[in-house]
């Protein structure tokens, strides 16, 4: 009776305990960051000697940090749009490729996700220097698009797998053009897949640091780049404040997504 929680007997307790411990393991760092962001000591002393809002004041009055949020957002959104468009075209292309070629195509588009980011980052940096794309917005977007594309292609392919191609084909048989059939039949039913493609693409850029370190320039410092620099040089509790803001943002987003899902039901 391994699939019925009520009938697991002593195993139920074991599962429950492990799940609780792992949850605690996952929550602890998040709680700690939030606490540290109110810690008055600049040297990460724990428990905090006093509580303070100083780090939030520093964060919200620092034009560099605010600028970084804007840059992250601009890069992230541009990458998302391009990644979903290119991912959609590519995924449809892959789904129509002859079976023998298909694994090769899938693998090719997956590569940037599988290969170590350090290698990609260094290679792109050296290449972009030669073609004068380094430190430009365009270069930054291209670099993150490379990393985001596999997520988008994957999500959309997954969506396509759950659509019966017979419907699209039926429309074509009835005289519709293939393009029209895609626009009116396939795309609408792909909406959830496109949505997850967009989210994954955005996160792939928003959260990315290694490639970003190499693509950054004075006017293009994303939030992770700034955090990284700070971790390397300053270890200032402002990072805790930034991190708390980021945690709250993801929390709100998850809450919103959940809310939308339950609305639909």
């Amino acid at each position: 009776m391994l699939l019925s929680f009520e009938n697991l007997g002593p195993w139920r307790i074991a599962l429950g305990i492990i799940a609780a411990l792992v949850t605690a393991f996952l929550v602890c760092p998040l709680v700690l960051i939030v606490m540290l962001s109110f810690d008055s000591s600049p040297w990460l002393v724990f428990p905090p000697p006093h509580w303070t809002l100083r780090w939030y004041r520093e964060l919200f009055t620092d034009p560099d940090w605010l600028g970084s949020f804007m840059v992250s957002l601009e890069v992230g959104l541009t990458v998302t749009v391009l990644s979903v468009l290119l991912g959609l075209i590519t995924a449809i292309g892959i789904s129509r490729t002859r079976t023998a070629w298909r694994p090769a195509c899938e693998t090719a588009f997956l590569m940037p996700m599988i290969l170590p980011v350090v290698v990609t980052a260094i290679a792109l940096y050296a290449f972009f220097l030669r073609i004068h794309l380094n430190g430009t917005f365009c270069g930054f977007v291209i670099a993150h698009l490379i990393l985001a594309l596999p997520f988008s292609v994957g999500a959309i392919l997954n969506g396509l797998a759950h659509i019966d191609p017979a419907i699209e084909n039926a429309a074509v048989l009835c005289g519709s053009s293939r393009t029209y059939a895609i626009m009116r039949i396939t795309l609408p039913s792909l909406r959830p897949a496109l949505f997850s493609a967009a989210i994954f693409s955005f996160l792939a850029s928003w959260d990315e640091v290694v490639v970003a370190i190499f693509m950054a320039s004075p006017s293009l410092q994303t939030v992770p780049v700034r955090i990284w620099g700070n971790l390397q040089q300053d270890l200032s509790p402002v990072i805790a404040a930034v991190s708390t803001v980021l945690i709250v943002l993801s929390g709100l987003f998850i809450f919103g997504a959940n809310f939308m899902k339950s609305e639909k039901k």
Partner: peptide, 16 residues
């Protein structure tokens, strides 16, 4: 939530 929290933020928490 933990998965979506910034990678660096999570690592930083472990440093502390």
């Amino acid at each position: 939530l933990s998965m979506w929290t910034n990678l660096l933020a999570r690592t930083y928490a472990w440093v502390v």
